[in-house]
Design a protein around this nucleic acid. Structure first.
Length: 735
DNA sequence: TAAACCGTTGTTTTT
DNA sequence: CAACGGTTTA
């Protein structure tokens, strides 16, 4: 290749092994890249290198797991060579592929993508229809079974053949029912996106050959987390030119519960003969202490090839380990410490807090709000799980795919329009008998004998509404949604008590829609729904916002921060109880080791400072439970820790419910219970008003700093000094 | 039919 | 402690 300026820039500053990977020519390449060893750098530069060498951008395909990672990679390649390359998540690549090609396997391209919640609803219905006991066959358990079959590319027929015993056979039957139900509704679940793609590859060699011709190079990030289907897909796609680049780190495999197979990475050579393997063991990210802490821990995994990262960086500050009475104390400490760091000049976006499970974010939100510290919970899925968002999406989905019974069922009586469970039942019966979709059946309400005049009328009205919705003509997604909300009476039709909440979420969803319009001027309803279906948690994170992100350890993979806090280092939390319970099936070791990898991933995100903490008492299911420090803490070498004697463990649960009263709100439900003693107009807060707080006692409002939805209120509680609280603006008379 | 009530239930991680 | 499902009541 000619040494142009571009190619020089591409290889500049690379180490010997990084350069070897970036400049690898033809044939399969495996890059085993330890945490912080420049993995993303290698993959983006390699793409840039290929483009600079004359490979057309549309003939390179890079696959990632999250949209965030895809965007980031695309952005970095663009910055290097100014070319827009195709980077996609596995799922969105498949979705787009199937929109074009699913007809080849006898399915319709207007399919709906079902998320976990949709799948669970289907399963619940099937269990009920088969009159099975839903405590023996728990919907979540059934879904897990179906998912694991799909991960192994086992269809319902094979599952039934392979099943012996009454329970396994029943599960296999439910699996078949589920598949039939999805097919009837023309819906695909997440796994199906991958599986149907594979089906097309298998059944239509011509279609596959087209893609194989097209993609001169296929690159896959985070290969350690691929499951069998993804592995087969990658193998299929590179089938002609045999140029596949896989990048991964066995120590960061954290998705075995989703079917990830370490074997895909470890036995890569068997599947791709002639593979060149490049190993990156030098770490550029973390201090010596952080690396030693991480290694001290991960080396306890037995099912692992030893490798140790090294760095030329300084030791850095010691790892801070702290014990607290409960998770609220812990959260307050994190907040105070974050406050210090920010005051010391660390950008809020350079700090992150990680936890094992989502519900652990609550005390943090409270503590950060109290100190008015900017933070964002990285959890966009939470938003898409909101009832209102699901409802509106169901309306849109039904417009695209009228056979989507699940969506129809969801909105046929939302808002209430007089179609109750009895009517729905009769409608379902009629649909079933006539081989119709629910919506089609609704269109023939007049012919359904079992319906009374009133119900018939209601169903007819609904069908007419649907017909009119189909005639909406608008320019943008936002306008479509506005129109739809108006025509369906979605907000006003809700009971009064819900209207405020509804309006708020609807507003957020409209904002999201607008954002879609802005970013996709050519976008259509199908594209919108696809994107909305395939968002992941991290996708909602605004990395450039000046706020401290809170996220699960799973979401943290691939990111890095100056300072990292990992909270809840307790037995049964990290490692999680479920992992400790696996002993029955003999996979205890594997499950425990995956928890350890999760911790390892978390620790290796930190550049400078790492803080680990745990609490002696933890609230679970409303009960206070005693918690033991995580075994993983013992694995961190003592000489990298800051030695400070921990507070003596409390003998009993924290007195009263001190922490239940930590008030201020980010969610409506958790209202402040400040009682106004005197001053002001008696029921609104204002400066100078005397108030009483259930925990802090009496106080006087010092000042109020107006904000958006919440004002920042400083209150002087006698004996405790001034406290800062975020309170809903509508209760406050701002100065 | 809808709203209000009550008991049961479950709680990992995510595309 | 919540969310959900099922039941009762208006």
């Amino acid at each position: 290749m000619p040494q142009t300026d571009t190619t020089r820039a591409i290889t500049e500053g690379l180490t010997e092994s990084q350069r070897e990977a970036v400049c690898h020519g033809e044939g399969p390449l495996l890059v085993v890249a330890g945490a912080g060893s420049g993995k993303t750098r290698v993959i983006t530069r390699r793409i840039a290198y290929l483009l600079a060498g004359g490979v057309p951008p549309d003939r390179v395909l890079a696959l990632t797991f999250t949209n965030k990672a895809a965007d980031e990679m695309r952005r970095r390649v663009e910055a290097l060579v100014g070319e827009d390359v195709r980077v996609s998540t596995f799922h969105s690549w498949c979705a787009r592929f199937l929109r074009r090609e699913i007809g080849n396997i006898g399915r319709d391209p207007s399919f709906t993508i079902y998320d976990r919640t949709d799948s669970l609803r289907v399963i619940r219905r099937i269990i009920k229809r088969r009159q099975l006991d839903d405590s023996t066959f728990k919907p979540a358990g059934v879904l897990e079974y179906i998912g694991s079959q799909k991960d192994q590319v086992i269809g319902p027929a094979d599952a039934e053949d392979g099943a012996t015993g009454i329970e396994p056979r029943t599960l296999a039957t439910l699996y078949r029912d589920y598949e039939e139900e999805l097919a009837r509704s023309n819906a695909l679940d997440f796994d199906d996106l991958l599986l149907k793609t594979l089906d097309v590859f298998r059944q239509c060699p011509g279609v596959l050959a087209e893609r194989q011709d097209l993609y001169l190079h296929v690159l896959v990030d985070e290969y350690q987390d691929t499951n069998l289907v993804q592995h087969l897909m990658a193998r299929g796609l590179q089938g002609k030119h045999r140029n596949i680049t896989a990048v991964g780190d066995p120590d960061q495999m954290i998705y075995s519960w989703r079917g990830a197979r370490l074997g895909n990475l470890l036995e890569f050579e068997d599947d791709f003969p002639g593979t060149r393997i490049v190993t990156l063991e030098r770490n550029y990210r973390s201090t010596g202490n952080i690396l030693r802490a991480a290694h001290g821990c991960i080396r306890h995994n037995v099912l692992r090839h030893e490798k140790e990262l090294w760095t030329e960086r300084q030791e850095g500050p010691p790892i801070v380990v702290r014990e607290f009475a409960d998770s609220y104390d812990e959260a307050r400490w994190v907040a105070a410490r974050v406050d210090e760091l920010i005051r010391g000049g660390v950008a809020p976006s350079g700090i992150a807090v990680f936890y094992r499970t989502k519900y652990q974010s609550m005390p943090l939100e409270d503590a950060f709000a109290t100190l008015s510290l900017p933070h964002q919970v990285v959890d966009s899925v939470g938003f898409f799980d909101r009832k209102e968002v699901k409802d509106l999406r169901a309306y849109l989905q039904l417009l695209v795919n009228p056979r989507d019974d699940e969506s129809c069922r969801r909105i046929i009586n939302t808002p209430s329009r007089g179609i109750g469970s009895k009517t729905l039942q009769r409608l379902e019966q009629a649909a079933r008998a006539g081989g119709l979709s629910l919506l089609e059946a609704a269109g023939r309400a007049g012919e359904i004998e079992s319906l009374g005049p009133r119900a018939r009328r209601a169903v007819e009205d609904f069908h007419d509404l649907y017909r009119r919705l189909g005639q909406i003509e608008v320019e943008s997604m936002r306008d479509l949604l506005v129109k739809l909300i108006e025509m369906t009476d979605y907000v006003e039709g809700q009971p009064d008590s819900r209207q405020e909440d509804t309006a708020e979420v609807v507003e957020l969803f409209l904002g999201y829609t607008q954002e879609y319009d802005r970013r996709n001027p050519e976008g259509d309803l199908l594209g919108f729904l696809e994107q909305a279906a395939l968002v992941s948690d991290v996708d909602g994170w605004k990395a450039d916002a000046p706020a401290v992100p809170f996220m699960t350890l799973h979401s943290a993979k691939g990111l890095e921060f100056d300072a990292v806090f990992i909270i809840g280092l307790e037995e049964e939390v990290l490692p999680h109880r479920r992992a400790l319970e696996e002993r029955v099936s003999g996979t205890e070791q594997e499950a425990l080791e995956e928890e350890r990898r999760l911790f390892y991933v978390g620790m290796t995100r930190a550049r400078e400072r790492l803080h680990l903490s745990h609490a002696r008492w933890r609230r679970m299911q409303g009960r206070e439970e005693r918690a033991l420090p995580s075994r993983f803490l013992d694995e961190v070498p003592a000489d990298v820790m800051e030695s400070e004697s921990p507070a003596p463990p409390p003998a009993a649960a924290p007195a009263g419910s001190f922490n239940d009263e930590v008030q201020y709100v980010l969610k409506k439900k958790r209202q402040v219970s400040l009682t106004i003693l005197d001053g002001g107009d008696g029921d609104r807060l204002a400066e100078g008003v005397r108030v009483e707080h259930p925990h802090w006692g009496e106080g006087t409002i010092l000042d109020i700093t107006p904000g958006g939805r919440h004002h920042t209120v400083r209150i002087d509680f006698s004996g405790h000094g001034p406290m800062v609280m975020l309170l809903p603006s509508e209760d406050i008379t701002a100065p």
